[in-house]
């Protein structure tokens, strides 16, 4: 469903993404994990057509995201990290806006907004401006906005950051049934437990390169994902120079 080859991006002197190859099959829930600043968001932005890569290609289904963006973006649902919504609109207006931008008609956009808000427990807040939402609520509205045109591939950057456990559980159920029906999900997260619970395959990115990829079992290689992740990311460095922290002031 998603085929990434040789993706590269540099900002000035720093190489943010250094030749990434990825393949995600249809129906998978694919976890993308890495430490802060590893290039997760940059990679996902290039995959979703928001940030132009220096080299490499991204193919979604049949369509190349950067050569025929129209076809690719029709089947793509996106939740980027740290980007604004039009936050003076109410939640309902926001969802309707996204629906119509993706080509839905009035009735479909409205009814799908209602269905999604029920599924994500947003009903009570739909008439408030998005600017008043908490971070978790914004993530939920963004997830609804990413789903509204029923895409074939969902790319979610940190979808559960700041979302409460109940809503997270709702959202995970929703993603599982979406994947069972043939949808594909790529999500990034810091939360290893969550990735272990939800994803069936993962990729670990460190310093702009993929260090391990495969099914969850392959990458875990016997230990827990968290242990593997810390190993791959350079292991635990001994805490030095902080001795004063263990000599308490009183």
């Amino acid at each position: 469903m998603l085929q990434v080859t040789g993706l590269r991006k540099r900002f000035g002197r720093t190489i943010a993404v250094d030749g990434i190859d990825l393949a995600v099959r249809k129906g998978a829930i694919f976890g993308f994990v890495g430490p802060n600043g590893a290039g997760k968001t940059t990679t996902l932005s290039m995959i979703t057509g928001l940030l132009r890569p220096d080299a490499g290609s991204v193919v979604v289904g049949e369509a190349d995201v950067w050569r025929s963006p129209g076809d690719a973006k029709r089947v793509l649902g996106v939740l980027p990290d740290r980007m604004r919504l039009f936050d003076r609109l109410t939640g309902a207006q926001m969802l309707y806006y996204c629906g119509v931008l993706h080509g839905l008609d009035r009735e479909t956009a409205r009814s799908r907004s209602e269905d999604l808000s029920r599924a994500l427990a947003l009903e009570g807040s739909l008439d408030r401006p998005v600017a008043d939402y908490s971070i978790g609520m914004i993530k939920k509205v963004s997830l609804a906005a990413a789903l509204i045109h029923s895409p074939r591939l969902l790319v979610l950057d940190e979808p559960f950051e700041g979302v409460d456990p109940v809503s997270t559980a709702h959202a995970i159920d929703l993603l599982r049934s979406y994947a069972r029906a043939g949808g594909t999900v790529v999500l990034s997260s810091h939360n290893m437990d969550l990735v272990e619970r939800v994803c069936d395959s993962v990729a670990v990115i460190v310093g702009g390169s993929i260090l391990a990829t495969g099914t969850l079992e392959e990458v875990r290689a016997g230990s827990s994902l968290e242990e593997r992740f810390v190993d791959l990311a350079g292991g635990r460095s001994a805490v030095e120079g902080l001795e004063w922290l263990t000599t308490f002031s009183d």
């Binding site: 129209g70 996106v78 806006y97």
Partner: peptide, 14 residues
């Protein structure tokens, strides 16, 4: 003036 909210237009290929 839209600031990063313009991503919605980019992602929907308006």
């Amino acid at each position: 003036y839209d600031h990063t909210a313009v991503w919605l237009h980019v992602a929907a290929h308006v």
